[in-house]
């Protein structure tokens, strides 16, 4: 008798349906987590490894000293450097090419760099439309560095002293 009553109540209140829709209803009632990419983006860590850049010192001097440690450590052999004695007697690159097709964004170059010159920015929105654009030259990398400098500096400031 009791069981019959229970059955009817469940039938009349559409209990099974509600049970089936429990997860749906739960998420329907909670706050939205879907982002409308590309209009909206997920937040990224300050350590996100995106597009490569070469940095300068605040006085405008390029940081890179052509030590070639990044070239040596690069597991994908994506970096090509040529160096010379610049007129002021310092060691500088004449060529600093990164093939971003080869680059696996591992960040070892940034880790190896003794002067914080080569860095990975958190920029991930870039696309290449023409053959040859995959080679990021020194000029291009320095330009990216100039554009993102404030962000790069900010991100590194967060991590200062943690590693």
């Amino acid at each position: 008798m009791w069981n019959q009553l229970k059955k009817w109540v469940k039938k009349l209140t559409l209990w099974e349906l509600l049970k089936g829709l429990r997860v749906t209803l739960k998420y329907g009632a909670s706050k939205d987590i879907t982002l409308q990419y590309p209009e909206e983006e997920t937040p990224r860590s300050n350590r996100f490894r995106g597009m490569l850049a070469l940095r300068r010192y605040p006085n405008g001097e390029e940081r890179c000293i052509a030590c070639k440690l990044c070239e040596a450590v690069c597991p994908a052999c994506a970096i090509t450097i040529e160096s010379e004695v610049r007129d002021d007697g310092t060691r500088r690159t004449t060529r600093y090419d990164i093939d971003v097709f080869k680059c696996i964004n591992c960040g070892l170059c940034e880790e190896a760099c003794p002067v914080d010159s080569i860095v990975l920015t958190d920029e991930m929105h870039y696309a290449l439309y023409n053959r040859g654009e995959n080679i990021f030259t020194k000029e291009k990398l320095l330009m990216i560095g100039d554009l993102y400098e404030s962000k790069i500096a900010e991100h590194r400031e967060i991590d200062r002293g943690t590693c």
């Binding site: 052509a66 030590c67 070639k68 070239e71 040596a72 160096s83 010379e84 004695v85 060691r91």
Partner: peptide, 9 residues
């Protein structure tokens, strides 16, 4: 050969 390259390469 100053600054022309590194010995490991």
């Amino acid at each position: 050969s100053r600054f022309a390259g590194r010995s490991w390469e």
